[in-house]
C-alpha cells in the first residue's frame, strides 16, 4: 500500500488522494502571450526527475503540493500551498484603453 503524507491530516492511503497535475507558476496575467497561456493551461513539462505536483486529500478537500521523483516514484516532501502562495494576487485588469480590439 502506498502512503502519502497530507500536511493537514497526516499519513493516509494513496487511494484517498487525487492527483492535480504539475505545478506551474502563474504567468503574468496581463503581459503573457497566447502561447504562454496555452502552455500554462494545456502543456506539461513531463520531467524525468523531481517535479512539484498538486494533490488533493479528497476526504477533507485539502489541496497541497508534493515534490516527487518521477523516476523512482518517491515522494520527497509534501507541503502547504502557503509556502508558495504567501501573498494575495490581485488580478487587476487593463484599463479599457489598453484592451486590444478584436
Amino acid at each position: 500500500m502506498k502512503v502519502l503524507i497530507c500536511p493537514l491530516n497526516g499519513p493516509r492511503n494513496i487511494s484517498e488522494f487525487i492527483y492535480g497535475g504539475e505545478y506551474h507558476p502563474n504567468p503574468d496575467h496581463i503581459e503573457a502571450s497566447s502561447r504562454e497561456w496555452a502552455e500554462y493551461v494545456f502543456f506539461h513539462r513531463n520531467v524525468a526527475g523531481i517535479v512539484t505536483e498538486w494533490w488533493c486529500h479528497s476526504a477533507s478537500s485539502y489541496w497541497f503540493l508534493a515534490e516527487r521523483n518521477t523516476l523512482t516514484d518517491e515522494i520527497l516532501r509534501t507541503f502547504n500551498t502557503d509556502e508558495i502562495f504567501n501573498c494575495r494576487v490581485e488580478f487587476s485588469s487593463r484599463s479599457n484603453s489598453e484592451v486590444p480590439s478584436g
Binding site: L8, N9, R12, N13
Partner: peptide, 8 residues
C-alpha cells in the same frame, strides 16, 4: 478526515 467504507 478519511475514507470510511470507501466514502469520505
Amino acid at each position: 478526515q478519511t475514507s470510511l467504507a470507501k466514502i469520505n
